[in-house]
Amino acid sequence: MITRTSVQNPKELRVVYQETMSALMSELPQVVALDADLVGASGTAKLFRAYADRCINAGISEANMMGMAAGMSLTGKVPFIHTFAPFATRRIFDQLYMAGVYQQANVKIYGSDPGFWALHNGGTHTSMEDIALTRSLPNLTVLAPSDATQFAWCLRKAALTPGCFYIRAGRKAFQDLYDPTSSFELGQAITVDPGHDLVIFAIGEMVSESLKVRDALALEGITAQVVDCFSLKPFDVNGVLAAIQGKRLVVTAENHTKFGGLGSAVAEVMAENALGIPLVRIAVNDRFGEVGTPDYLQKVLGLDAESMLKAIKAKL
């Protein structure tokens, strides 16, 4: 049951991580948490103090952290590892493959600060390709939650479901979308708002951005259905097809490169089902990141509501 919330009291996602992990570690003795010298940055210092024997600082060695977590899982542990999204994916891709999914290990990865959320860490720390990389691997569940409630649900679901998970989310607060009592399903997209003229498929913080676009279009008498595709793998092919039904434009919105992410996933579904409807992919257009504030970066990368509106109107 999924209920939209009318209250805005967004929590930082790193706080949600710490609170959810604390609950999970209290309930499930097999859960362990690893970090690669980002305990302070991920807001888990309290967790690491409370569960000192089950929280492991692997030092600045992400490859070894991933391998160790996989090894621990082979003895029955349920390890959660955290580092920034670029280090959790492109830096340790072979470890994710070999130690993780290839041998069916059971590691849960929180890749934080994806896309422009690298902010003042800049282009070196920006990951715009993590979904493309992770979507390509068998045995890996890939999730991009859009608010605190959904993020907490993803973490809990990962703890209780065998297999490797990659969860990408910022550390800062996302706008609240769902009532805390909401429960989701892997492989099930969520219609956040209905509409008739076009459909916007979005992930992460881009769901809230898409709602701004929806409101702006509504003023002009255009209705847009907004769909949260947080479960990138498994992907809700039927849900996507149903949402496209009767629309004259399909839009995708993601804080990620336009190659291999949500836009590609939707394009694959459309092509395989011979849907001859125009597609607008709101995504990072084959470029790197840079330092800046969220507002600035969103704008220069074309991921803000204004840029989205412009791109959509050009096709309507």
Binding site: I56, G67, G71, M72, Q95, A99
Partner: peptide
């Protein structure tokens, strides 16, 4: 280079 990390993780567990 990867097996040793698996072994270290097992031992830590």
């Amino acid at each position: 280079g990867q097996g040793i990390s698996l072994a270290v993780g097992m031992a830590k567990a």
